[in-house]
Design a protein around this nucleic acid. Structure first.
Lengths: 194, 194
DNA sequence: CTTTTTATGGACTTGACGGTCCATCAGACC
DNA sequence: GGTCTGATGGACCGTCAAGTCCATAAAAAG
């Protein structure tokens, strides 16, 4: 399948339109007709650009959203080199998810695509990358003498990732950011040895 | 609607059968026909006992599963009065979710029932209860002088709940318990002031 | 300019699933 | 034992959404 420039643009429009819809209030189950309506395309276009049908399309959207997750935490996440930077990152994460509210585009996506091979790969890559960046931040602080050497950076990074995931999940269920904030604060306190 | 003993038994059989199915490999979307087949009942029985249809039934199953969550952590969760007890609890949580593997009955349920009023109430009650029990454990350790007074017990309890949630979610996605264990260990270390 | 490939529109098919309806059976109550 | 209410079976219906198909327009290739 050779795509022309026009075709590529349409394909991208479909992905971004679907992503937009996923962010709206209560996307619930996404249907191809929803996407068709939003993006002003026809059924045949969807299947033209995503021969694998709905699953392939949703996976493409998941990859797109997955990139957004870490992008939205930059530049803070990439430069956790002082306590002030950690604080800014913490605030950025809370703000991002507070803005997202009860809707987690990636979460909705994953629940509709769960148990396909591609889904595990997308989320696995995201989690690994996330963890690696946090770990790097911890190691930098250790190198600077701000965090004691004995602390297991990789394990602590895993705890951050899990804590944020859980905090967001609680947020999705209850609408409150308290758990997310508590986790981040407790874990940062732990790093500081408080 | 007056239920006879027989009727009550059937109603319960439906709930437990549905719960059983949710634990199987890849339940995906649950359909009423699945439940009908598993429980050896007919459509009319389902609607007889759950006039609200699928939503009411799934909510009943969610309540049932919700009770299991904390039950499975007892008696450890209810008596976090020594570091050994914390360790046993930690192991029980990991074992429980490792056994559950990639399937989280309650998680599947919530994704099919999300955004109904009852769903928020079920999960909210579970989280609050969980948090309260952990908080109580921390306070008891503080009273015993094992944890410093300055630590915010409620906030730390919230971090535990979020961390476990997130760890389980990572487990569901990747099949690995590493994040869950890391979170629990880091948070317990934090309590110990290590 | 014509031919071949790609892009698009939209009707149609197929299957699944929630929910309804009515008929029949069984046990409680008088 | 007759009647009434609850328990059960299963056919049936309506809807909705994924996916197919063919026709046509537009653009690239020669």
């Amino acid at each position: 399948m050779a795509l022309t420039a026009k075709g590529l643009a349409t394909r991208q429009r479909i992905i971004e339109g679907a992503a937009l819809h996923l962010r709206g209030d209560d996307p619930g189950e996404v249907t191809l007709d929803d996407i068709r309506a939003i993006t002003g395309t026809s059924k045949s276009q969807i299947f033209h650009y995503f021969p694998g049908g709905k699953e392939e399309l949703l996976l493409a959207v998941a990859r797109y959203e997955s990139d957004r997750v870490l992008d939205d935490q930059q530049p803070h996440l990439g430069a956790l080199t002082s306590w002030a930077a950690w604080r800014r990152w913490r605030d950025a994460v809370v703000a991002r998810y507070r803005a997202q509210g009860r809707n987690c585009p990636l979460g909705s996506l994953m629940s509709q695509v769960r148990s396909t091979p591609g889904a595990a790969e997308v989320v696995g890559a995201l989690l690994a990358n996330w963890r690696a960046q946090i770990r790097r931040g911890i190691e930098q602080m250790q190198a600077a003498g701000e965090i004691r050497q004995g602390l297991d950076a990789d394990r602590a990074a895993a705890a951050f990732v899990a804590g944020i995931q859980g905090g967001v999940q609680v947020l999705r269920s209850t609408g409150r950011t308290g758990h997310l904030e508590a986790t981040l604060d407790v874990l940062i306190d732990h790093l500081r040895g408080v």
